[in-house]
Simulated assay, not measured.
Amino acid sequence: MLSGKQKRFLRKQAHNVKPILQVGKGGVNSNLIKQAEDALEARELIKISILQNNSDDKNATAEEIASGAGAEIVQIIGSTIILYKESKENKEIVLPS
């Protein structure tokens, strides 16, 4: 579980990151979760945008992706989800304690 200080730090790190995944009208599926896992392993911090044609609840969508990928939700702002997961092999982000 991330502390408030760690979430603030990660939000700052994610500010200039572009969304690399999109959730469309098909919603969350196993392929999207697999792509999120791979992206998190490579980058540790990713943004996912929820398209306007997706009618699912944003919080439920974020929770489904995060639990499927084993990640932490940093923030849900507008239609953008920020996720963090510590990389096993490419660790770059050092969280404040």
Score class of each variant (00 low, 15 high):
Gly4Gln: 10
Gly4Trp: 09
Gly4Ile: 11
Lys5Asn: 13
Lys5Cys: 03
Lys7Met: 13
Lys7Phe: 05
Arg8Gly: 12
Phe9Arg: 07
Leu10Ser: 08
Leu10Pro: 07
Leu10Ala: 08
Arg11Met: 15
Arg11Ile: 14
Gln13Asp: 01
His15Ile: 03
Val17Arg: 10
Pro19Gly: 01
Ile20Gly: 09
Leu21Ser: 04
Gln22Glu: 13
Val23Thr: 09
Gly24Leu: 11
Lys25Tyr: 14
Gly26Asn: 15
Gly26Ile: 06
Gly27Tyr: 12
Asn29Asp: 15
Asn29Ser: 08
Ser30Ile: 11
Leu32Ala: 05
Ile33Phe: 01
Ile33Val: 15
Lys34Pro: 00
Ala36Asn: 04
Ala36Glu: 05
Glu37Lys: 13
Asp38Gln: 14
Asp38Gly: 06
Leu40Trp: 08
Glu41Cys: 04
Ala42Phe: 10
Glu44Lys: 03
Lys47Thr: 01
Ile48Thr: 04
Ile48Val: 15
Ser49Ile: 14
Leu51Tyr: 05
Asn53Thr: 13
Asn54Arg: 07
Asp56Lys: 13
Asp57Thr: 03
Lys58Asp: 11
Asn59Gln: 12
Asn59Leu: 12
Ala60Gln: 14
Ala60Gly: 02
Thr61Trp: 04
Ala62Gln: 02
Ala62Leu: 04
Glu63Cys: 00
Glu64Leu: 12
Ile65Glu: 02
Ala66Trp: 04
Gly68His: 06
Gly68Leu: 06
Ala69Leu: 05
Gly70Ala: 08
Gly70Val: 03
Glu72Ile: 00
Ile73His: 08
Val74Asn: 09
Val74Cys: 05
Gln75Met: 11
Ile76Val: 15
Ser79Val: 01
Ser79Gly: 14
Thr80Ile: 14
Ile81Gly: 03
Ile81Ala: 04
Leu83Ala: 07
Leu83Ile: 08
Tyr84Trp: 09
Lys85Ser: 10
Lys85Met: 06
Lys85Cys: 06
Ser87Gly: 06
Asn90Leu: 12
Asn90Asp: 11
Glu92Gln: 13
Glu92Leu: 05
Ile93Cys: 06
Ile93Arg: 02
Val94Pro: 00
Leu95Asp: 12
Leu95Met: 07
Ser97Lys: 14
